[in-house]
Design a protein around this nucleic acid. Structure first.
Lengths: 206, 206
DNA sequence: GTCTATATACAGATAGAC
DNA sequence: GTCTATCTGTATATAGAC
């Protein structure tokens, strides 16, 4: 029982599933594909995950953690505009992937959203965390009443941008659309600085 | 050989596939499901379509025709704002479906876009027709240089709106976001009236 | 904990009688 | 043109040796 240094097969499986499901889709990614990519024998997968959906859940949970790290990173900026711009720039930084596979979160919400069930809710929560985080930022800039609408507009635009980029395989579209979005952000929040610096991270993903 | 009144099995299959693929996804919809919904024996499907992808192509072709009908319908309006508003209202009219299944075109582009291949291109063309149509309208309103960017922004917003609506199962979001979009349209094209009325339909889907 | 072999189910596609 | 029966591949999941 290696308690101290337990092996990383479970994490390798999650990592492999994450990549493959993003590059393909949940339903076209087979457990055999995942096992092979993770270099774990197929039969052994079931020791770590009871079902394919359980792997999907684990992948989403992992992405949720990564998202929280990003929130912390972006919150190092003190102006709201900078924080929100970091979110937009995060998409810009992935533009090649967007053109090939679309938005990692949006594609999950699209595919799983039609089915309903537990995993669909988890995917929706991921998108919800993103919206809530943006909402908190807009609130901090003094846009209290409109914060929800503004946050939804921002994420909706990023999702739409990602989908058109995937559809037309045109990376340039990310550049143009993100520039427009950054201008829009500045127009909405100006140079507002965050007041209650410490709390926003926790509020966003409560 | 009933030439005059040939039966409608082929059309029933396309119709059934259209609905099922929209409600579920391409990969989770089986030929057996389609055959059953169309009330055609499974083996007989292959008389009309060589492969499953051939059915997908036929469905997209069908949607393309419906889109052209809609374009003609919307072009009965003489002001550009009205025409574009019809597009937005078309989404509003489907809001219940959007909340359950997302954008009919966007979900296809998302799912098929990752795979590439012929059907992905056909789906992309569908979205492309929509963008081009909007572009022609913006041009007609005198927004010649920005027409492409404006058209992309409009369709991107509609796609993003649809995805968030599906994700959060919140129909109200369509109302709010579409109102914002209609205001945006008016701000961009004002009360401009279309000049070359007759040509726009053909240009849009050339 | 690990892995081979396999059960079970169902997908897309075909053969061939009618 | 139509439809039953079925081939073939492959998916998820399990059994059970190690």
């Amino acid at each position: 029982m290696p308690r101290v240094k337990k092996n990383d097969k479970r994490e390798r499986l999650i990592q492999a599933a994450d990549t493959l499901i993003y590059h393909h889709t949940f339903h076209t990614t087979t457990l055999a594909d995942i096992a092979k990519e993770a270099d774990v024998p197929l039969g052994n997968v079931y020791y770590y995950f009871k079902t394919k959906e359980a792997i999907m859940s684990a992948v989403i949970a992992e992405r949720s953690l990564e998202l929280k790290d990003l929130f912390q990173e972006w919150e190092k900026a003190v102006s709201v505009a900078e924080r929100l711009t970091h979110l937009v720039q995060h998409y810009v930084g992935q533009s090649n992937d967007l053109a090939q596979y679309g938005c990692p979160i949006g594609s999950l919400c699209q595919e799983l959203g039609k089915h309903g069930g537990p995993v669909a809710s988890l995917a929706a929560k991921l998108m919800g965390d993103l919206v809530k985080w943006a909402e908190v930022q807009f609130k901090a800039a003094g846009q209290a009443e409109r914060s929800e609408a503004l946050a939804e507009h921002l994420l909706s635009s990023l999702a739409g941008m990602s989908l058109l980029t995937l559809t037309f395989k045109d990376v340039n579209y990310v550049e143009r659309q993100s520039a427009t979005l950054c201008d829009w952000i500045k127009g909405k929040v100006g140079a507002a600085t965050v007041r209650t610096e410490q709390r926003t991270a926790e509020e966003a993903v409560a």
